[in-house]
């Protein structure tokens, strides 16, 4: 078990969003968390990435309590890309991606050859090599999103947590990002946890789906087992047909209507 949440209680202020949740992430898998808006997906992801400290329970990284580990050591193993991050104006793509090397740098070692090659690879992987000198605020939404992913890649961690990495992207770019995730996992053996809204893409690119509602895990397992018509009704209040994806053979959700109407 690479990453594990044990009986965690999460929330902001005195508002509890997730209570008594358990979740384990196996090494070398792609896990996708799905669920309706406000179900606690992002909150859970933030806690797994030690951005949010649980008010109860604990998060374990390789069996050790993540909040007891030096945060810089965690950052060498675990990368997190939060939802809708912001950058100062005028920052170039190469500068942003280079900042992903922060955990590997010290005051006397600010730009090693490792840093250089990691940034180069990260830019190449996201197809941004030609845009390195462009300021971030001049890019399209899709390019900007790829720049942020590139920054997370440059961090060079084998665990990667991505909060809605495909927002702002058209379908082709969504598929591109997810193909990238698949390559990270397939070729480099990285472990990825992400939050996605598109159920069909989630089913196609994940080894494991975790369906949440109201801060609880309703179902977890391979996409074919999790993504059923009864689960969609339970988690999303959605009437839908689930058929086989003619391309990948994974479940394909065809919505009929919400259950309120």
């Amino acid at each position: 078990m690479r990453l594990q949440a044990v009986d965690v209680r999460l929330g902001y202020g005195d508002r509890v969003i997730v209570d008594g949740l358990d979740l384990g992430i196996e090494a070398g898998t792609v896990t996708t968390i799905i669920g309706p808006n406000g179900c606690g997906k992002s909150t859970l992801l933030r806690a797994l990435g030690r951005l949010l400290r649980p008010s109860g329970g604990e998060v374990l990284l390789d069996g050790k309590r993540i909040d007891k580990m030096p945060t810089k050591e965690v950052a060498k193993v675990l990368g997190v890309l939060p939802q809708a991050p912001t950058a100062p104006e005028g920052l170039t793509v190469a500068d942003l991606v280079a900042r992903g090397r922060h955990p590997h740098q010290t005051w006397y070692r600010q730009w090693s050859s490792d840093d250089e090659s990691a940034v180069g690879e990260a830019l190449a992987m996201t197809g941004l090599h030609d845009l390195g000198e462009r300021p971030l605020d001049e890019l399209s939404g899709g390019q900007r999103q790829r720049a942020w992913i590139s920054m997370a890649l440059a961090q060079g961690t084998d665990l990667l947590l991505l909060d809605e990495p495909t927002t702002f992207l058209d379908l082709a770019h969504q598929v591109e990002v997810l193909e990238l995730v698949r390559r990270l996992h397939g070729e480099l053996g990285r472990t990825v946890v992400m939050v996605l809204h598109d159920l069909n893409l989630a089913a196609r690119y994940a080894d494991r789906l975790v369906a949440m509602r109201d801060g609880r895990v309703i179902a977890a397992g391979p996409p074919a087992e999790v993504l059923t018509e009864s689960l969609l009704a339970e988690v999303f209040d959605l009437d839908a047909k689930v058929i086989e994806d003619p391309v990948a053979g994974t479940p394909l959700v065809v919505p009929i209507g919400t259950r309120h109407s």
């Binding site: 202020g13 005195d14 508002r15």
Partner: peptide, 10 residues
């Protein structure tokens, strides 16, 4: 302040 309506749809 800060205490919002529970997210459940009723």
């Amino acid at each position: 302040p800060g205490r919002a309506v529970p997210p459940t749809a009723t």
